[in-house]
Write a protein that binds this DNA or RNA. Structure first.
Lengths: 173, 173, 173, 173
DNA sequence: GATGAATGAGGATTCATTCAT
DNA sequence: GATGAATGAATCCTCATTCAT
């Protein structure tokens, strides 16, 4: 992976997540990345290929977001951390999530798979905690957290901290 | 409002909500609406003008979704109905919500205002029910319901009914 | 000639002379004249027909500009007045001349004919004044006056009065 | 500057000067230049950008028209040559002047600046020749020559040579 | 690997003109 | 006479993609 290829991905990631896939022209990407437009197509064949390349990076990094959870054994602590996750997303991770969300609506691709591990982990937690229906309980929580991350990304939160505490209380963790 | 203008709005609403704003070409709209492409611009000046026209219809109709809540006085019943709302959205309303959500991500316009009435009503319910912090409690619930409607729209629900019951139980209504 | 037809001609004259024939859209004319666009075509068949209608008005009025010269008998006085003509053109006449000039360059139509009478009269003056070659002498003067009127119309004159005196002196009148 | 870009400018110059700016469609230019239409916009961004590009060429070449005058020292000879200039304009220079004149009427841009050098030179000549008011004298002459060139361009001259001699005699050179 | 000139299909928009009422 | 909805061809412009160097 050359320096220029990395730069292309980086810029594309930024611009896709900011303006969407369709609305970002390849020549804008090229200009911003200080690279000839042709190079994009040499490396990725397609605009769609570029998108794939960008998505891979996203997935790799979003996956890493969940890694710290592996060290936690106690269910309550684990659950608490799962809930907290979207509330303290760093700048970079936010960008990955933003792109993922944008594409969920724009392209409709299969992005859910990235979140399969965290879904499974959440389900396990609820199992350990003896919830009646761990599967749908996990679905409910993830849906909530999805709502949270949307608000965070779009910067539409009025009282992030209180909502966080609210959820923590609801799940008694 | 002539028949053809109505048809244009109708088709545009459908296509925007299905494929997004950018990805829908005006000539596709014209063809689908069996109308000359020029007519779109005569009536709406711009593609963006068309979008505005479509959004107005959306807003008008989404607002109507909340009307039935006005008849409910008992807080618990009201809250229950608020929660249920996104779970039983009809075909048409779904389209309006889909468009609104798509645009929230694609265009980033100010759509929140449409939901201000329902936010206020939710807040009032929590007040009546003596919740500690009705405001952020309302924010939390709406955020959850936002997650629900996203799933419904994108047809990504695994167990809609159970999640619904789950929420009903959580709020003890 | 109805009031509305007059208004159309008037507005078209104004807009053509200001922005040119091509650059003036019929719907702009209609809007400015507070008239339906269709009416333009009912009255003039074509945009070109409208132009013809406008040009007729122009010609009629430009011709009138020369009428006062008919009363002058003394050659020197007559010549002096011919020279002065483009230097003191009123608002309205300026508009007619502006349109005529614009069209000379934009459409290339046969506009010269309007100026045939003044050309003839100028030639006669030079004949009376015993110039060697009255015909080309007239051509020269008219060419000069054409330059003058261009400057006046385009408002590019630095010292109109002095140039005027200059010419008067050159022709010793 | 690639061959194709040169060709585009060349063709545009020709077509603008012949049919005017507005009336020349970009796809006509492309076809005539045997070039894809897109290339025009890649090189010049805009139709207006193309116009600017064309104008630059015009200005550069029109400026060159005046260069031979630099070698002439004797005022009378110089003045004579200034007067003669518009009477013997070659094919190419005629095209540049035609475009400049067309645009003076169609677009109204600031074209006068190109003629500033010749204006200054003319003024100097009249100074050397002890004319009373060299500045307005120069303005007068240039105005005359402007009339001449218009006639030449529009091919409306009846007796070019005689008019030329006429002017030469008037200025006694 | 990298460039940048070139392409051509498609997209939004304009505009003269028609026509039913 | 007058309106205004409707048309469709033409126009300017964008953009992903190719290709020679």
């Amino acid at each position: 992976m050359t320096e220029k290829k990395k730069k292309i991905i980086d810029v594309a990631l930024e611009m896709f997540s900011e303006n969407g896939y369709k609305s970002t022209a390849t020549n804008q990407i090229a200009k911003e990345a200080k690279v000839s437009e042709g190079l994009i197509f040499r490396h990725f064949k397609n605009k769609e290929g570029l998108l794939k390349g960008v998505l891979e990076v996203c997935e790799r990094n979003v996956s890493k977001m969940f890694d710290p959870l592996d060290d936690l054994k106690h269910p309550k602590v684990l659950l608490k951390n799962i809930i907290s996750l979207p509330f303290n997303t760093g700048r970079d991770n936010m960008r990955y999530c933003k792109l993922l969300n944008k594409l969920k609506w724009e392209v409709g691709g299969e992005i859910e798979s990235i979140f399969e591990p965290i879904r499974k982990k959440t389900e396990e937690v609820f199992e350990l905690m003896k919830y009646d229906d761990p599967k749908s309980e996990a679905e409910t929580l993830l849906l909530i957290l999805d709502g949270v991350i949307s608000k965070v990304i779009l910067n539409k939160f009025e009282s992030k901290l209180i909502v966080h505490d609210n959820l923590i209380k609801k799940y008694e963790v």
